[in-house]
């Protein structure tokens, strides 16, 4: 599904470079559930951003579904991204001014999906995540777990091939976290490819593969 070749990411700080990622070689196959772990500042999030095409690597090659993403310009990258990726955040990042229904609808609006089709897709998602009764509520009227559930639903609504999650349970109580992780498991069983960043061994255990990052290097993979 995706392949990283000698990916390096560094920032200029004054006259020297600060390395965030060094020589990352990684392949994720379709249907895998990968957990990225490591201490703070190890480069986990940056790796996720590069995979998610929100950030570009300083050096190296990135192939997504055999497309050379490192050669793509902004427009092509975002088209590819819009088509195949779903993102989930630690702090949910729902849009405060929009209701649950409208939050789910937004990605479809940007993809220019027709109104009638949009409606049925949103209703399916509401149904599937059992939040139909909350569709007209605003994010601040929901608990953290419910918000993250909406976040997951929103990431899935455009039917992505790859789901990227940045500490999805970081802000949640353990029971709510478990619910989200159960969802991830179910989705993975249905064939969804998932890459998550996590601090929790327990959450990492949901996936089949754990990559450990330390100071930008891959320390272990498997």
């Amino acid at each position: 599904m995706l392949k990283l070749n000698k990916i390096t990411k560094h920032y200029k700080t004054g006259s020297s470079n600060t390395y965030v990622l060094r020589n990352i070689n990684l392949e994720v196959k379709e249907g895998e559930f990968v957990s990225v772990m490591g201490p703070s500042g190890a480069g986990k999030s940056t790796l996720l951003h590069i995979m998610g095409m929100l950030d570009v690597a300083s050096e190296g090659e990135y192939y997504f579904l055999d497309n050379p993403v490192h050669e793509f310009n902004d427009k092509k990258r975002s088209a590819l991204y819009k088509e195949h990726l779903g993102f989930i955040f630690q702090s949910y990042h729902l849009i405060d001014e929009l209701t649950v229904y409208e939050n789910l609808e937004t990605p479809l609006l940007y993809k220019k999906v027709k109104s009638s089709q949009r409606k049925s897709m949103v209703c399916d998602m509401l149904d599937r995540f059992q939040v139909v009764g909350k569709k007209d509520l605003f994010p601040h009227q929901l608990s953290g777990g419910q918000q993250q559930l909406v976040g997951v639903a929103r990431a899935l609504i455009s039917q992505p091939k790859l789901l990227l999650a940045d500490e999805p349970t970081g802000n949640l109580h353990s029971s709510q976290g478990e619910e989200i992780m159960d969802w991830f498991k179910t989705l993975n069983d249905e064939g969804m490819t998932i890459v998550q960043v996590t601090h929790s061994e327990k959450n990492a255990a949901y996936g089949g593969r754990i990559i450990k990052l330390v100071d930008g290097w891959i320390k272990s993979d498997g």
Binding site: K75, Y81, F87, H93, L94, I95, P107, Y110, R154
Partner: peptide
């Protein structure tokens, strides 16, 4: 800026 970023992540050009 937060809202804009989320919208971009959701696919806004």
């Amino acid at each position: 800026v937060g809202e804009v970023s989320v919208r971009k992540v959701l696919g806004a050009t």
